[in-house]
Simulated assay, not measured.
Amino acid sequence: MKPRYLSQLLALSAVWGVSFLMIRIADLSFPPVWVGLLRCATGALFLWIVLIAGRHTLPPRKLFVWLFLVALTNNALPFSFFAWGERVVPSSTAAVINGTTPIWALLLSLAVTRKRASLQTVLGVVLGFAGVALVVMSQTGATGSSTFHNQELFGALVIALGALGYAIATVIAKTKLKGLDPIGLATTQLSLAGITLIPAAFAGPHPGHIHLSSVLAILTLGVAGSGIAYLLYYKLLAHASATQVAAVTYLLPLWGLLWGAIAHEPLSIAEFAGAGVVVLGLALIHRPSPLPRVTPQTCVDRA
């Protein structure tokens, strides 16, 4: 990969990696569903401007059902679930749990295609989940309160469901939404996700005292994490192989730990070790194998 594209890959992973910290900051002022709604709204607004200026095309109406399902599983639910879970789980831990997304995508793809996984792939999956378990248990074991321990475990489970949502969206998009204008697809799914979240947001808790930091975090999530990063992702795919771009998957847990450390979140050696095990598992899954296998795709909107 050329140095220019390598720098863009690092920038992309850094933007997606900081999203976990931005979610935690947004949580200070906004309920989880509102974090999802505002992120979708700001991201959609940015992409509508890009779509109109660049004369991109929207997906055909006949694909509405699939578009709605992708909007639900790739945006509405994960955005809200990550915000929900990060009320008790550190952003660094959320970033590592998010590393299970390509693993879930691989398992779902294997189930759909009914193909057998190689021993290397199985080992990668086991290592990936083992690394996440190590991080979660080290974090939840840091407090002596059993009540808070249970809350952290529940928060981790909610975040894992968000990661599973990303994986489901990946499989749907790969099988049902091929060949579409990526800008039109992203604009549509963010818009649909935002519309879907409006009733839930207004029916549930409303924002109280709003901090400037939370507003800036929402803008970062929408414009950078769901807008600029999306454009950068597809620009990279146009100049580098999908396997090379998939390397962003390895970097996200590491960026999550780095941003968490900068934000003074408590980190342990076990968390770094667990993140390393997750990265090793992902590397094994993506490593070329002489046997035919399903290659997981990198999901858009990694947090």
Score class of each variant (00 low, 15 high):
residue 114 R to D: 06
residue 147 T to F: 14
residue 112 V to L: 12
residue 84 W to S: 05
residue 119 L to H: 10
residue 146 S to D: 08
residue 118 S to E: 09
residue 132 V to D: 05
residue 95 A to H: 07
residue 90 P to Q: 09
residue 96 V to M: 06
residue 137 M to I: 10
residue 85 G to T: 02
residue 124 G to Y: 02
residue 132 V to Y: 11
residue 93 T to N: 10
residue 106 L to C: 05
residue 90 P to W: 12
residue 143 T to I: 07
residue 86 E to Y: 05
residue 100 T to I: 12
residue 116 R to W: 06
residue 93 T to R: 09
residue 138 S to Q: 02
residue 97 I to R: 14
residue 85 G to R: 04
residue 139 Q to H: 14
residue 78 P to K: 13
residue 89 V to D: 05
residue 149 H to F: 15
residue 100 T to L: 15
residue 85 G to S: 08
residue 96 V to S: 13
residue 127 L to S: 00
residue 96 V to A: 08
residue 131 G to S: 04
residue 85 G to F: 08
residue 110 L to E: 05
residue 85 G to P: 07
residue 148 F to A: 10
residue 127 L to R: 00
residue 135 V to A: 02
residue 89 V to S: 12
residue 101 T to Q: 13
residue 95 A to P: 01
residue 92 S to L: 09
residue 123 L to V: 03
residue 116 R to I: 07
residue 104 W to I: 00
residue 77 L to P: 00
residue 103 I to N: 02
residue 122 V to D: 01
residue 82 F to S: 04
residue 104 W to E: 04
residue 88 V to Y: 13
residue 139 Q to I: 05
residue 84 W to Q: 12
residue 143 T to L: 14
residue 141 G to R: 04
residue 102 P to L: 06
residue 104 W to Y: 15
residue 120 Q to S: 13
residue 110 L to Q: 05
residue 119 L to E: 09
residue 134 L to F: 09
residue 142 A to Y: 06
residue 103 I to R: 03
residue 95 A to T: 00
residue 134 L to Q: 05
residue 96 V to P: 03
residue 88 V to I: 13
residue 133 A to F: 03
residue 147 T to D: 15
residue 140 T to I: 04
residue 150 N to L: 15
residue 137 M to Y: 10
residue 126 V to P: 04
residue 150 N to P: 02
residue 110 L to W: 08
residue 143 T to A: 13
residue 102 P to S: 13
residue 118 S to R: 12
residue 108 L to E: 04
residue 137 M to C: 12
residue 81 F to Q: 09
residue 105 A to N: 03
residue 94 A to Y: 06
residue 143 T to K: 11
residue 95 A to M: 06
residue 93 T to D: 05
residue 77 L to Y: 11
residue 103 I to G: 00
residue 111 A to Y: 10
residue 105 A to D: 05
residue 117 A to G: 10
residue 111 A to D: 04
residue 135 V to C: 07
residue 105 A to V: 06
residue 137 M to A: 13
residue 145 S to G: 01
residue 128 G to R: 03
residue 89 V to G: 02
residue 127 L to A: 02
residue 87 R to F: 02
residue 120 Q to P: 01
residue 106 L to W: 02
residue 146 S to L: 15
residue 113 T to R: 15
residue 80 S to R: 11
